[in-house]
Design a protein around this nucleic acid. Sequence first.
DNA 1: CTTTTCTCTTACAATTTTGTAAGATTCTGA
DNA 2: TCAGAATCTTACAAAATTGTAAGAGAAAAG
Lengths: 224, 224
Amino acid sequence: MPKILLIEDDETLAKNLVRYLQTEGYTVHMADGQKKGLQLFRTCSPDCVLLDVSLADGNGFSVCSAIRQSSDVPVIFLTASADENCTVAGFEMGADDYISKPFRPRELIARIRNVLRRHTSAPKLLQCQNVTIDPSRGLVLKNGNEVFLSALEYRLLLIFFTNMGKLLTREQLADELWTFSGEFVGDNTLNVYMKRLRDKIEDDPQNPTILKTVRGMGYKAVQS
Amino acid sequence: MPKILLIEDDETLAKNLVRYLQTEGYTVHMADGQKKGLQLFRTCSPDCVLLDVSLADGNGFSVCSAIRQSSDVPVIFLTASADENCTVAGFEMGADDYISKPFRPRELIARIRNVLRRHTSAPKLLQCQNVTIDPSRGLVLKNGNEVFLSALEYRLLLIFFTNMGKLLTREQLADELWTFSGEFVGDNTLNVYMKRLRDKIEDDPQNPTILKTVRGMGYKAVQS
DNA sequence: CTTTTCTCTTACAATTTTGTAAGATTCTGA
DNA sequence: TCAGAATCTTACAAAATTGTAAGAGAAAAG
């Protein structure tokens, strides 16, 4: 149940919106002005803010920039004017979207879902077949069980999983692994690491399904 | 210079847009239909796609979903109709934004900048004082120079940096580091790891400024 | 089929990591 | 001040990682 903070001083519109958003399954908090809005923002920590540009006690831009001081919660501007300058100023203030009144409720919902989807970008997992990297914990899982990789093996796998499907030359891989530390390693070293990695993550290391060799070129990770 | 792919079959509009976008500093590639558009998409690998919903040889939604098969490049729909169903369908197709004709060029630019900003969302770095973790590369830097951490040290630091400022008890830390692998480690082991980590990342390990001890409780990372 | 080239595999020493133990140090409360 | 508790530091062996070399195996070219 995402929480939404609505800051709007048009009472009729506000009430209608609240009702509509609630039927869509959102929890809605409401404020009718700048001061109350910021107060409520701090206490209810919403997942998304709907913000009227023209408030009785000041314009919405200052509210947005105040919010941006402490948070990157998605903000959608609501405005009566289709004035393009508002749009531009809103985006430059760090708004995530902008919708002009009058708008259809369904469009608002779509825009809310859109910014939430982008923002709630799940703690990204990198996945390929039955192997998963959780970069936020520095873990590698195979069929849900932890696989112990050394620092270099982990970095090597990370390169493949962040370049899924792309051909990576030996040179590129070696550069990424060793040039930062200024070391020079032998020509065969990468082969050995590929073997070690395959031994740890492939079901049948002799017939790798994840880390494929591209003869004469390099390697690539394939989804299936 | 971001590259933009414009897929639009209204020749007049297209030409105007191209000129305008170029004056704004963008490199623009243009296609007047579905087939050409997808072809060009593959060859020019744009940073953003502007996509007319109604094309002569099919609607824009199928183009968008074809693009989404292989890429998460931002897509902005252009449409003549202010029909809300289009908006909704577009977002559900994975569009990033939506703009109705007629629109002001400046608004389009603002929306392009907006999606590019979101999309080019810098590979998130975790930072504390002069120490940085780059999770997307599995690297730790101190004053911009690589610090070589073992797998466990890296994971330990990651826990602190993703829980900046929060107190973490010994138990929490040990759980996160060792329970996944089902091992039991001695009471003092965490102390030793804390020392090793401090030796590698603190300027003065005896007087840590990043990884602070909270006596009787645990440890926490502090911003300054 | 043979040769050549590229990749894989194995084995090996040097180094690093890992976990423990034992003692030193610091902090807190009586 | 002193005792007890918590934390830090050092030192140590077992285990794992790291990079190399040498040879085996596979694929492409002649």
